[in-house]
Nucleic acid binder design. Structure first.
Lengths: 152, 152
DNA sequence: CGCAGATAGTTGCAAATGCAACGATATGCT
DNA sequence: AGCATATCGTTGCATTTGCAACTATCTGCG
């Protein structure tokens, strides 16, 4: 245990550097394979988790924490690769549903073991189960508060 | 406590979304002021912590986890603002020392309270001291392992 | 000493980002 | 119904990013 006077500030600093370092490592590893980058995985996974395998653009953007304009273009790339498709929303003439395709699900399944192995190697391996639970709980609380506060 | 079967995978997912969400919130808040963006702070702080207020470019890049080419241009911006300066390294004719200036220290001091308040508001506020210690320790271990393994 | 290979930092380039502005549609108020 | 206002998704633009290539310098080995 640290005996740092400002444990919370320290935790924040470490959180930042952990994110940067691990994303860099994992991203590089992923880039070494022929598989798509990490943000494609996020999109596919969000869609696959969602009811009916589809989500509105703005909702998807919110969930993966990306600006709408960036999502527009990320979705363009995924759509070109036939991993998702945009279908007109029946409820709302302005918007679309992003829907994961069969190929999209297949791609996510193919990416998962690789991604999982990297997470294991760079993250899970180094922390205990209790720590994992604590991290999950504590950070989830902060995220929830941030989401509930000022609307993005 | 969660009773998730895959607590570690879950912790990883939450870590990602916490980082994205909180950086977004804090970054937006910072942008609302007239102060420079967050990555400027990181550079200034790294330099201020370092022996003699200076570091070699590659070492600075490593510490803030940024590619060398990006650091070159980030340093350009900071240097234009007179917050740092590049001085030829006496030891190595190829490289420079990035040194923080008096104005650089002043700017960091001015940014800190604002940044600190945002960290408090979006992060520290929501976690306990024990959780902070756990997060700091666990993630520091992972970072250390990542750094020690394959050289970046 | 002298040359091969590694390393420091910069630059060209293509890709990805967010903001602001836009057309299109939905919603609410009278 | 009719008009003001908000929201959806896309696009133009300026900024930032990393990779690969480049020059300059250092290091080691014959």
């Amino acid at each position: 245990m640290t005996k740092d006077k400002d444990s919370k500030g320290h935790a924040w600093a470490v959180l930042l550097s952990a994110h940067a370092t691990l994303i860099d490592k994992i991203g590089t590893a992923l880039a070494g394979t022929k598989l798509p980058p990490l943000d494609w995985y996020d999109v596919l996974w969000e869609l696959e988790k969602a009811e009916g395998g589809k989500l509105r653009m703005h909702e998807l953007a919110r969930r993966i924490v990306l600006s709408r304009s960036s999502l527009t273009r990320l979705a363009d790339r995924l759509e070109s690769a036939r991993l998702i498709e945009r279908v007109d929303s029946p409820d709302d003439g302005r918007g679309y549903h992003c829907a994961i395709t069969r190929a999209g699900r297949a791609m996510r399944s193919k990416m998962w073991p690789v991604y999982k192995a990297e997470i294991e190697h760079h993250f899970s391996r180094h922390i205990t189960l209790d720590e994992a639970r604590t991290i999950g709980d504590a950070l989830a609380r902060a995220v929830k508060a941030a989401r509930d506060s000022a609307p993005s």
